[in-house]
């Protein structure tokens, strides 16, 4: 499917695309980007996986991003049968207690990657069975990949 067709298909899934804050863009990226309200994330993801026309069954990259004010997660999805790629983005401005739905029940690979994001960004994933730090020690304070993280001992700032 071309990007345009995917776009149209996804839009039909939502009765009111505005309420889900569905936004498509291809600007500044080689893939089709889609950002969505975190409320609808899990719903959208299971559709993307199970719909025969999209069947995005390969989650090859899960990235946490600190946009400065907002925290977000970027999902890179590929379909192994159609070989098309989509990038799904969610973000929240709640830096104290950011929570997104876990997608590890859709793609088991998300299990480790979500733990990594939790570890380094402090983003919690609702429904994750084993959400604990992956790399850092259990008692580590702060989330190193956040832009406002400061560690005078371990960080060399240029």
């Amino acid at each position: 499917m071309t990007n345009q067709e995917i776009k149209e298909l996804i839009t039909t899934w939502f009765s009111g695309p505005e309420s889900a804050h569905l936004e498509f863009t291809e600007e500044g990226s080689q893939f089709l980007n889609l950002s969505i309200d975190p409320e609808y994330l899990h719903e959208l993801m299971s559709w993307l996986k199970t719909n025969n026309k999209t069947s995005f069954d390969y989650l090859f990259c899960l990235t946490g991003v600190d946009w400065g004010k907002e925290l977000g997660v970027v999902y890179h999805l590929e379909s192994t049968s159609h070989r098309h790629i989509i990038v799904v983005k969610v973000q929240t401005s709640d830096r104290e207690n950011p929570v997104f739905d876990s997608v590890q029940d859709i793609w088991p690979t998300a299990n480790f990657h979500e733990r990594e994001v939790f570890d380094l960004f402090g983003i919690k994933f609702k429904g994750h069975p084993n959400l604990k730090r992956l790399f850092m020690p259990e008692d580590w304070e702060g989330f190193p990949l956040r832009k406002d993280y400061e560690d005078e001992v371990n960080m060399v700032v240029k």
Binding site: E27, G28, S29, F31, F60, C61, T63, V65, H76
Partner: peptide, 22 residues
């Protein structure tokens, strides 16, 4: 780099390495 997002995948000996630059 111009503003934007760049993703490059290559095949290492172990599998797919992706570089994602924002």
């Amino acid at each position: 780099l111009p503003k934007g997002e760049y993703y490059q995948k290559v095949e290492t000996a172990r599998g797919e390495l992706g570089v994602y630059i924002i």
